[in-house]
Every structure is written in structure tokens, then in C-alpha cells.
Design a protein around this nucleic acid. Structure first.
Lengths: 106, 106
DNA sequence: CCGTATCCTTTCTGATACTG
DNA sequence: CAGTATCAGAAAGGATACGG
């Protein structure tokens, strides 16, 4: 693989899991499906607006499935797709790396 | 490890390698030290301003070393620190993942 | 319960010109 | 060569109010 391909693929990957909230939402869903409010409870600092936005982007990129139950009151469940599940091991490694090297250390 | 620790560490890691340019600069340096202009040549779309800014942030987070040679004309070389090198395998995996799943596919 | 809509502030980015 | 300075537009993010 040449430099360009390498750089290009890394860039694409970072686009799909980068940003302020995406990785956190993916992690929240690693153990199975959750309702909107349950995700929100796991990530209290996120606002409803940003959670909705993040979930939509993850859905668009095929990382997350959205399942709406036609009930009243409404119930919506989110879960990882196969693609979404496949990135979890990498997030696990990032987590280990993040713990091993504290921020701002050399 | 509880959810909070996990989420927190992933967040910290994404902060250090996320964003539009950081991962690309790290990849550019994976094979050894490079001068400012050489990095710029590997990543043509980045502007001088953003390259400087990105390198400073990577340096602050201890991922990159900056070595200034007191010469005229000036020469500055950048290389990965041990911490920087340690994240390359993860970027490699992200690259593989990015290639396996094309953007916007399910 | 699960969102949208609106508004506003902050941050990010690119273009361009300039310098030791 | 390796930056810095300045500016303006774009994008991201948060607060709040409202709706089916």
C-alpha cells in the first residue's frame, strides 16, 4: 500500500469514529442495544440535540442501527451493526493506550 | 474497569489523535524523521498554518519531538516519541478497518 | 419518550501576506 | 526554510423551548 492509500484510509476511519461524541456513543452500545434515554444516562454531559445528531451520523455511516417501536409512548432502540461491532476492539486498544499514557505526559 | 473509566480513556485518546490532521501527520512520520517541508509534501492539502498548529499540539501531548538545528537557512526535524510510535499500530488497524468497510456502506 | 427548531457562542479552518 | 499574523467564513457545540 502506498502512502496515499494509507493516509486516505486512516482519514476515512477517523471521520467515522472521531469528533467529540461518536466514540463515546459506540462504547456505550458495546454491550448491546439501548434506548435513547439509556444512552443519554451513560453519557450525561451530552445534550439531546448532540446525541440525536451523533446517532444519525453513526447510522448514516452504517455503524449503528435504529429500531423504532410503533408504541405510545415511543420507544427507540439503538444497537451496533456488524461494522460498528468490528470497530470496538480498536476502541478498546485506544482505551488501553489512553490509560497507559496519561494526557500531556512524555 | 467501569464504564466511566473506559469512556474517559477513549475520549482522551481520541482527543490526542482525532481531528482533521493529527492522524495524518502521525502516519507521515511513521517511517522516521522528516523536515517541515517534507511533511507538507506528504500531505499536500494541509496549509502551513494548520501543519504548524497540528505539530505543536502533537508536541504538547508528547507524541512528536521537534528538533531545531541552529543553521541558516533554518532546519527543523520532527519525529515520533515513544508514545507517538506506540499509537502507530492502532492507526494501522484503523487503516485496515477503513479499507475493509468503505465509507457509507453497511 | 424521543426527538426538532431556533438562536447564539465558540472553535476550526483556509487564504493570504509577511518575516528572521 | 519554517514559520507568524491577520482576517473572514464555516462548522461545531450548547441552551432552551416546543411538539407528536
Amino acid at each position: 500500500m502506498n502512502d496515499d492509500d494509507y493516509i486516505c484510509s486512516v482519514e476515512a476511519a477517523i471521520n467515522e469514529i472521531g469528533g467529540k461524541w461518536k466514540s463515546l456513543v459506540l462504547c456505550a452500545l458495546k454491550d448491546g442495544k439501548l434506548r435513547f434515554s439509556e444512552i443519554n444516562r451513560k453519557i450525561p454531559r451530552i445534550t439531546q440535540r448532540m446525541l440525536t445528531k451523533t446517532l444519525r451520523e453513526l447510522e448514516t455511516n452504517g455503524l449503528v442501527n435504529r429500531l423504532v417501536y410503533p408504541e405510545v409512548p415511543p420507544r427507540v432502540e439503538y444497537c451496533l451493526t456488524e461494522k460498528g461491532k468490528s470497530v470496538i476492539p480498536i476502541l478498546d486498544e485506544l482505551c488501553e493506550w489512553g490509560k497507559r499514557y496519561g494526557t500531556h505526559e512524555k
